[in-house]
Structures are given as structure tokens and as C-alpha cells.
């Protein structure tokens, strides 16, 4: 335990570094996946092509991708940007499929009625389609957040600092506490991000809260007859 007390600063710093790697990747994968998922949802042809592509992406071993990326990006192997790009790609592998499912899950009746109300195509997307896809998008984003935080540790193997550095360093120097601290911090960070996402979701989508959905069937007053003035 002595190691932990004397290295608390370092653990704290690595948590921040780890966040700086994961959060941009999580956000970028979400931002890129939503439009791609929407295209996949719109066309049957695009659906099979795009989803096969992202499935393929997920099949690429992470270490191989980390090492191959610099050849494409021209950055050095140890650049954190490489890691962020790789994590973004892995996030997209999960998120594109979920985004397509999320748009598929929006009720056609509701969209038709929105059109009948007089929403333009773009208005309908931002005001009706995207918010209604929200709950499924959020469930995908939660998976991406947790898996990105955990996957970011692999960067330590190629020399990009993260909480994973506690594993590699702990192994090399035989400090068990350091390894455990790395694992616990990674899990805590993943759970923390998940907590934030759940609460942001509740704020943005109050209508999807379970307590809102469950009160249906409770007797509600119907005024018998009121004349129009």
C-alpha cells in the first residue's frame, strides 16, 4: 500500500490523461456514427454495406491497428492522437450499428404524423427523429464509453501514457498494488462516465424515464362536457 500513498499524485494525473484520451474518442465516435447510422437506416443497400464494414473494423486486433495507423496518419507511433483515432474507430464499430437500430426503432406512425403536421424533412430530423432515437443512442453510447475507457489502457503497451501504464509499470517492477490500483481506477472511471451519461440522458430525455412510462393506466379525469365559448 505504501506505493499507492506515495504515488497518489501520479495516479490522479494518469486518470486525467486517461480521460483526455477517452472522452474525445467517445464524443467523436458518437458524432461520426449518428449520421452514418442514419444513412444505414435509410437505405437497405447502405445498411448491409456499412454494417459489414464496421463489423470488419471491430475484427481488427487493437495492437495491430495501433501500429498500422501511423503509416496512414503520418504521426509517430507514440502520439496520443493515434490512440484517439483508433479508439474512435472502435467506438464507431459499436455505435454505427446502434445508431441504425435507434433510427429503425422510431415509430413510423409518429414520423408520418410529424410530416402531416407540416414539419420539413430537416425539421423533422432534429425535432422528432433524433430525440426519439435518443434512448437507444444513449444505450449504445454507454457501451462505447465503458469499452473505450477499458480499451485505452492498451495504449500503454505502445508507450502512450494512460492508466494502462500502471499495469505495464507494475508488471515490470513487480508492484502488485500498482496493477490493482490501475484496474480499480479504470473501472471507477468507466462507471463514473456511465453515471454521467445516464444523468445527462435523464435531463435531456425526461419523457423516457421509467417513472413517466409506468404511470399509464392510473385513472385520469375526463371532463364530461365543456362548451366552446
Amino acid at each position: 500500500m505504501n506505493w499507492l500513498w506515495s504515488n497518489l499524485d501520479q495516479v490522479g494525473e494518469l486518470i486525467l490523461v486517461h480521460l483526455a484520451l477517452s472522452v474525445p474518442a467517445i464524443i467523436l465516435s458518437f458524432v461520426f456514427s449518428v449520421p452514418i447510422g442514419w444513412v444505414a437506416h435509410r437505405s437497405r443497400w447502405a445498411h448491409s454495406v456499412l454494417l459489414s464494414l464496421v463489423a470488419l473494423l471491430y475484427a481488427v486486433p487493437s495492437l495491430a491497428l495501433f501500429i498500422a495507423l501511423p503509416a496512414v496518419t503520418g504521426l509517430t507511433l507514440r502520439s496520443p492522437v493515434n490512440l484517439v483515432i483508433a479508439l474512435t474507430l472502435y467506438g464507431m464499430a459499436v455505435m454505427v450499428r446502434t445508431a441504425a437500430d435507434a433510427f429503425d426503432a422510431v415509430e413510423r406512425d409518429v414520423l408520418q404524423s410529424a410530416t402531416a403536421m407540416g414539419y420539413s424533412t430537416t425539421g423533422r430530423f432534429w425535432v422528432v427523429e433524433l430525440p426519439l432515437a435518443g434512448p437507444v443512442l444513449l444505450s449504445g453510447l454507454r457501451v462505447v464509453a465503458v469499452s473505450t475507457v477499458s480499451l485505452a489502457t492498451v495504449g500503454a503497451v505502445i508507450g502512450v501514457q494512460s492508466l494502462g501504464s500502471l499495469f505495464t509499470d507494475g508488471f515490470q517492477r513487480g508492484i502488485e498494488v500498482e496493477i490493482i490500483a490501475g484496474i480499480v481506477a479504470t473501472i471507477a472511471l468507466a462507471l463514473g462516465l456511465d453515471w454521467v451519461l445516464v444523468h445527462v440522458g435523464r435531463l435531456l430525455m425526461p419523457w423516457s424515464r421509467p417513472e413517466v412510462k409506468n404511470v399509464r393506466g392510473e385513472p385520469t379525469p375526463v371532463v364530461k362536457r365543456v362548451d366552446v365559448a
Binding site: E107, D109, V110, Q112, S113, A114, T115, A116, M117, G118, V128, P131, L132, G134, M205, W207, S208
Partner: peptide, 17 residues
Amino acid sequence: LRRGIGYVMQNSGLLPH
């Protein structure tokens, strides 16, 4: 045109959010 015509459908078609 649609903004000037009332429309009511089966299952109400209300916006759930």
C-alpha cells in the same frame, strides 16, 4: 399546405417526447 390542414390519425400519432 399541411400546416393549414388538420390531421388526426389512428394511434393518435402524438409526439411521445
